[in-house]
């Protein structure tokens, strides 16, 4: 399964699969037959008030997505209709605006991918998994290796990459396909967005975070929040991986400037809480 976005004025291609227009208004200068649509869901577009407030201002993009996703949560039937198409092949969300980075189709795609990955409204498991690139090796019998983050705020993606056994770039691409971007400030204060990425690699995160009590009480594998602090009143932290296996206990830290990304200086790290991870494979 694949969800793509495309400007409606671009030529239709067989690889588009199921073509869905998600603009509230019919685009100018294009006929019904030229559009080669399988479906038009005008009511799935952002409300007029939200669209006018956003006005395709990139500075408002993050907040726009947040508000639009909130609107979409109230449109369960339309989202279900669209989601029903996804497991059957490629779905292309079509839009008319010139801005290819900041538009409702891009925002809708990220909403859809997170929903599909989280399995909130559909069948969980293999059929709906949106794995783009799979791990190179399996977890069993392989020592976890640290992954260095290639984006300043990409510690969550790097931590998942380390556990999944994929490169940072591979995990980054998968995350982006799920609508997860390291630059998204919401990632820095919430754990919601790392869960679909873990699940996508058949990794099962615990449903809630647990407060850190001691190193010995940690599970054998966990995402650990260290350097916990507040920025502009919002909690922020640095994700690392805690692992306990035949090589003993250690922390895999993705921070680029570290001399060694395998850490055992447990006294210096002050974890706030952890998210246990279980491998399904």
């Amino acid at each position: 399964m694949k969800v793509m976005v495309k400007r409606i004025y671009a030529p239709a291609a067989r690889s588009d699969g199921f073509r869905v227009l998600v603009d509230r208004l019919w685009p100018r200068g294009i006929s019904k037959s030229d559009a080669k649509l399988d479906l038009w869901l005008p009511d799935l577009g952002p409300s007029t008030a939200l669209r006018q407030w956003f006005n395709h201002d990139p500075a408002r993009w993050e907040e726009f997505q947040h508000r639009y996703h909130a609107e979409l949560k109230g449109k369960t039937e339309l989202v279900s209709e669209l989601k029903g198409q996804v497991p059957r092949g490629t779905v292309t969300l079509l839009y008319s605006v010139k801005d290819e980075q900041h538009n409702q189709a891009v925002a809708l795609r990220s909403f859809l991918m997170i929903r599909l990955a989280a399995g909130r409204h559909g069948t969980r498991g293999k059929k709906h998994a949106v794995v783009v690139e799979g791990p190179n090796t399996t977890m069993s019998g392989r020592a976890l290796k640290p992954v260095v983050q290639l984006e300043r705020t990409g510690c969550g993606i790097a931590a998942v990459a380390a556990i999944a056994g994929v490169s940072y770039r591979q995990a980054q691409r998968t995350a982006n396909q799920l609508g997860i971007y390291a630059t998204d400030r919401r990632l820095w204060s919430e754990t919601t967005y790392v869960r679909p990425l873990l699940r996508n690699y058949r990794l099962c995160p615990a449903s809630t975070e647990q407060p850190f009590l001691s190193w010995s009480s940690l599970p054998d594998l966990a995402l650990l929040a260290i350097k916990w602090h507040r920025e502009r009143g919002r909690p922020c932290w640095h994700w690392v991986v805690f692992v306990r296996d035949s090589d003993g206990e250690r922390v895999l830290d993705s921070k680029r400037s570290l001399k060694s990304h395998v850490r055992r200086d447990f006294g210096r790290m002050m974890p706030k809480w952890y998210l246990a991870v279980v491998t399904k494979r």
Binding site: R24, L25, W40, L41, P42, D43, T48, E77, L78
Partner: peptide
Amino acid sequence: LLTANSGIFA
């Protein structure tokens, strides 16, 4: 009839 045409409600 409604969800495909909410634009006309305005």
